[in-house]
């Protein structure tokens, strides 16, 4: 999963619209990642097509999305993969201490 897709999915644990996602990701990465509007829109379309997110409200000019069960499972699987990476990277601490 790309970093963009991961952070968009993670943002959609709560219902959010496109710009809400951009703001949330900016906030939780302390400004490291400002997702572009084109990137967010394209990724939302792909995630929706893969049924990892769903449209939950469609008001006049704002579409609100939220993660689906399948999307949540993907996030959990990615979390496990990341935890494994972190765990295995601990070998670096031993090298530093030696």
């Amino acid at each position: 999963m790309t970093e963009t897709a991961f952070y968009i999915l993670l943002s959609l644990l709560e219902p959010r619209h496109g710009y809400g996602i951009i703001q949330h990701v900016q906030s939780i990465t302390n400004g490291r990642i400002t997702l572009g509007a084109g990137t967010v829109y394209g990724t939302l379309k792909k995630l929706q097509k893969a049924e990892l997110i769903k449209l939950i409200a469609d008001t006049t000019d704002k579409k609100v999305y939220q993660v689906t069960t399948a999307g949540y499972q993907q996030l959990k699987a990615e979390q496990q993969r990341l935890q494994e990476l972190l765990h295995n990277a601990e070998v670096l601490n031993d090298v530093e201490n030696a």
Binding site: T2, E3, T4, I33, T34, L35, G36, A37, G38, T39, G42, T43
Partner: peptide, 8 residues
């Protein structure tokens, strides 16, 4: 930037 990652 409108597009901020390689994939998009």
């Amino acid at each position: 930037q409108l597009y901020t990652d390689q994939q998009s």
